[in-house]
């Protein structure tokens, strides 16, 4: 009913809405917004499909056998699992949520959440293609992102509190005789509805920043490495690019040294406005408000250290 009313109202207001799009900035922002939705929805649904498979066919007992019992060991193992899942950040959120539902320790699920979009083969190949003159960028990105995932995971085993994630997320689907395919279908449907709206919210924010952030932010930063690192870390959060595309954007900012661009590549897949919205919707606001700043600080530190180590300087 309410949906009908919304659609009817929008149809009636179509004229003024289209008129609003006459402004080039609004039109560009609207197109960027739709592009983010069209690009990210398939990855989100891929994540919910994996989540559905986990819910329907992978019992908590199986996961317990695969993962080490000690969280401190489970964190790097879960992080390494991210190496083989060719998804981007939108896909890993529903999967991590379902891992928690199937009894995986939160710290390990979060290590997977951070590792999967950052260090999978597709992203590493894209990075190599985007930086043909600097192959060391691939190793630096792998190192920085892996350190971020494991570092945040280990920190969570020390400082994490059970109350950060709602208890309802920790229960696998009840075995009430529902056929497995129906559990699968309902999990996919439910996860898309739950997360989709937040993905759209994140897409709105990212589109707005994409048209509003002036290029002058990155011009003239070349001589100021510390400032450049700060600006690029902030840009990674605001622009919320897919991890498959961010290397090309970093490559296009060729006036900057390698170190700030590496920070952009390590921070982006770990924390950005789209991801924070998705995580708030999936794991609850209490979790997202703590996880985002923690991840941001760890990611910037790991990226700077990895860069200094691999480039032997600011690059």
């Amino acid at each position: 009913m309410a949906l009908c009313a919304t659609l009817l109202l929008a149809t009636l207001l179509q004229g003024p809405l289209v008129g609003l799009l006459d402004a080039p900035t609004v039109r560009t922002g609207a197109t960027v917004f739709v592009a983010i939705c069209v690009q990210a929805l398939p990855f989100l649904v891929l994540g919910t499909l994996l989540s559905g498979v986990l819910a329907a066919w992978v019992s908590p007992a199986v996961l317990r056998r695969v993962l080490p019992t000690r969280p401190a060991l489970a964190v790097p193992v879960a992080g390494a699992a991210g190496l083989v899942l060719p998804g981007c950040e939108c896909a890993s959120v529903p999967v991590a949520r379902r891992l928690i539902g199937q009894g995986v320790p939160e710290a390990a699920a979060c290590a997977f959440l951070l590792a999967a979009p950052a260090i999978n083969p597709v992203v590493l190949v894209a990075t190599a293609v985007a930086f043909p003159d600097h192959p060391e960028m691939v190793g630096a990105r792998l190192l920085g992102s892996a350190a971020t995932a494991v570092g945040v995971g280990w920190l969570l085993t020390r400082v994490g509190r059970p109350g950060w994630i709602p208890a309802r997320l920790r229960h696998p689907p009840p075995d009430d005789g529902t056929p497995r395919w129906a559990v699968f279908s309902e999990t996919v449907r439910h996860d898309v509805v739950d997360a989709g709206g937040f993905l759209v919210l994140g897409g709105l924010a990212a589109a707005a920043f994409t048209v509003l952030v002036p290029r002058s932010w990155v011009d003239g930063l070349a001589g100021h490495v510390v400032l450049a690192v700060a600006v690029m870390a902030l840009l990674a959060v605001l622009l919320a690019l897919c991890s498959e595309a961010d290397a090309f954007v970093a490559a296009s900012l060729s006036a900057l040294p390698l170190l700030p661009r590496l920070v952009f590549l390590v921070v982006g897949p770990a924390v950005d406005v789209k991801l924070v919205a998705l995580q708030a919707g999936t794991f609850g606001r209490a979790f997202a408000l703590r996880f985002a700043p923690l991840t941001f600080v760890v990611a910037v530190s790991c990226a700077v250290l990895a860069g200094l180590l691999v480039f032997g300087g600011t690059g």
Partner: peptide, 13 residues
């Protein structure tokens, strides 16, 4: 579902 799900209307529109 929570109210955020309504945002899915935006890309459709």
């Amino acid at each position: 579902a929570g109210p955020a799900a309504w945002l899915l209307v935006l890309p459709v529109l």
